[in-house]
Amino acid sequence: MSEATSTTAASSAARQSSVFKLTFRLPIIIWQSLFFIGPLCFMVAMSFFIVRNYRMQEDFVMKNWLKMLGRDYFWDSYVLTWGLAGIGTVVTMLVAFPAAYTLAFKASEAVRRWAIFMLIIPFFTSYLVRIFSWYVILAESGVINAGLSYLGLGPFVMLNTKFGTVVGYMTLTLPLVIILQTFALANIDRSLVEAAFNLGCRPFRTIYRVILPMARTGLIIAAVFCFILSFGDFVSPYYLGGSKPPTLPILIVDTVKSGQQWPRAAVVAVVMMVTLFVVAFAGIMAAYRRRVG
């Protein structure tokens, strides 16, 4: 009798506990499969669909791939996107470094906390409006040129140039890169840096020989994030870079917004994803590679 009650109690307790557990697991798995994995898989599949009479039909043909990859303008876009994102990343990393260095090594704990507090803010505020603001600032009769004209300089053409695009990228990436670099540098054992100075190592040499190698993992991760964000951004190259020739993201926007050629846009998107995956993978390998010697 007591045996029986105890087993039913046991199984009901076990059942309640697994209901509880699954309540936190199943809905998430279903939701994310349906609305995250689903769309991405469908997009890959869509790159093999066909468009007939302005209607997309499910199919499995290589036509879109051959069409896109066979065109010069696609490859021009590809190279351009790489180039812009690459330049953007190098410039952002270089511009951010002295700032992160100051925050990590020179600033007090309170200043560092405040700076990071401030740097988080733009990350969550409208990127679009900030880009539009740059448009006005950088224009031929904009704030900067107006200011320079008092000095008898200019006007300089900054809009619709690669410079404009990179300024746009930096609007997106600079705060994040400074934060990541600051964390990477702040994690370095300070006594090692001081030891290098005491041994007569000059500042730039110390940065190059001691600080950079020790902060490598964090710095590479910052660069990878910066590259991914720049590579996928269509606003800066569109509004500040003039969109001609288009970058890959602009190609997607144009293809989708000007008709039903979604499968071709999907081809571009898949190429972008593969590229970013390879970059991220290479970055992670480089970041966590054991140092030799």
Binding site: I28, F35, F36, P39, M43, L229, G232, I252, A269
Partner: peptide
């Protein structure tokens, strides 16, 4: 895998998510 399912979306460029979502919701 479970964590990846939740944490990965921000690593995918928005424009790609936008296209994928557009097509999937249409479907």
């Amino acid at each position: 895998v479970y964590l990846g399912l939740v944490l990965l979306p921000p690593t995918i460029p928005l424009i790609i998510m936008a296209l994928a979502m557009l097509a999937w919701f249409a479907k």
